[in-house]
Write a protein that binds this DNA or RNA. Sequence first.
DNA 1: AGCACGATTAACT
DNA 2: GTTAATCGTGCTC
Length: 205
Amino acid sequence: MDTTLPQSFYDRPVLHVARDLLGRRLVRLLNGQRVSGRIVETEAYRGEEDLACHARAGRTPRTAIMYGAPGHAYVYFTYGMHWMLNCVTGPEGFPAAVLIRAIVPQEGLDVIAAHRAGRPRREWCNGPAKLCQALNIDGRLNGAALWNVGSEIWLEAGQPVTEEQVRCTPRIGIHNTPEPWRSIPWRFVVAEQLNLKEKQNESSG
DNA sequence: AGCACGATTAACT
DNA sequence: GTTAATCGTGCTC
């Protein structure tokens, strides 16, 4: 077993939490079985002034969770078919969350493979909607307490990464967002994984 | 009530 | 590089 990240882990500024989530373990319990992966890519979304953040529209039924207590899951639906998993961060009353963009599968590989049938292993969890499909995460988990070990979903300490392993880039998929938000480097990636993605791009382009 | 768009993915040219 | 899939959300009328 591994130490569960306490609620206080999330009660910090969103940029700190986004960076600190690298190397941590995301655990899903499916039919009593642990299905998990190591977080290797995150993005921070911070406040109503961040025009890429859903909270730019203020407090609405969808964004209310981001204004609440840190450590809860914000799970939303987009493009008519995809779910995304976020961790709400502090302080309470300020809307901010970390998008989990990629994990490396660790436990329950058979379950993940079944959910991602037919895809090569490297494409099982290397995208925010892919990992939700792989771990069977959908809107039913919106608002879940992520420090609640043994529930449906939680996070464990895992193996934090060193500063040398962290790469920062602009966030992905917000090309219609005005500057400076479109280019601000609030995406955090484990260097090894970023190198893998660059190699993929080279070979496909 | 109607509209445009989206923190994406997969398949195609 | 381009585009369809597909529907909840927030905005306008």
